[in-house]
């Protein structure tokens, strides 16, 4: 691990950690939340920024069942569709932590990449695991990032356009996240305070993903 970090540092990929809180809002009340976020976040005078992304998750399974599969998330922007920017993201296992820590924490590497990354991953032996589209709004307050987005299931693989998508739920996912160098616990408190201001509209919580997979 030590070695990976030093390599990463050399290539300007700092070991970052993502602090995360998640929740959701019913579509009916989404505009109220957007309005509140617009007031709370930076650039209140501008219209909220929108985004529309296509995410493909690639998995490399170990030879034996005991080995954990490695996942990479490739994301490209669909907005504008003619010049998509690509990036690849690795997410570590989420640590739920104890009561003193208010957010999920997980290792997070974000790297911008070229559009042949899918081909490259396939050559490496990665296989597409699943994919989805995510569309919504994006706010920031200082280094905190807030997204309010809908998740769309792809009916047909590989070609994300309006006809081949269906919304997963009648709710939008709300995520509050900060990517920061490791060991900055202060940020979790800031996020907690911010999340408090969105109550009772949205309950932003640290959601244990392992618990969800059991259900």
């Amino acid at each position: 691990m030590e070695n990976t970090f030093s390599v990463g540092l050399k290539n300007n990929i700092a070991p970052q950690q993502e602090y995360l809180l998640q929740g959701s809002i019913v579509d009916l009340h989404r505009d109220v939340l957007l309005h509140r976020l617009r007031g709370l976040c930076d650039n209140a005078d501008k219209q909220p920024e929108t985004f529309s992304d296509h995410e493909m998750v690639f998995v490399l399974r170990g030879a034996t069942a005991q080995q954990n599969p490695v996942l990479f998330r490739v994301r490209r922007s669909l907005d504008p569709p003619d010049d998509p920017s690509w990036h690849i993201r690795y997410l570590g296992t989420s640590e739920i932590g104890d009561k003193n820590r208010h957010t999920l924490v997980r290792a997070c590497f974000d790297v911008a990449c070229s559009n042949n990354v899918v081909k490259f991953l396939n050559e490496m032996g990665f296989r597409s695991d699943h994919e989805y589209c995510v569309k919504g709004y994006f706010f920031h307050k200082g280094r905190m990032k807030v997204t309010v987005s809908k998740i769309y299931r792809m009916v047909q693989t590989g070609t994300p356009d309006g006809n081949t998508q269906e919304a997963m739920t009648q709710s939008s996912l709300v995520e509050l996240s900060v990517v920061a160098p490791a060991g900055q616990e202060q940020i979790a408190d800031d996020m907690k305070n911010f999340a408090e201001q969105l109550k009772p509209l949205v309950q932003l919580e640290k959601v244990d993903q392992k618990r969800l997979s059991v259900q």
């Binding site: 959701s24 996912l173 259900q215």
Partner: peptide, 28 residues
Amino acid sequence: QQPQTSSQSETNTLIAAISMGKGLRLQS
């Protein structure tokens, strides 16, 4: 009292979907 503006089950569905692909992989 405030009307119900968020649903825990939908939160879980969404998070399970984006973190583990639950419900997204089903079709294939």
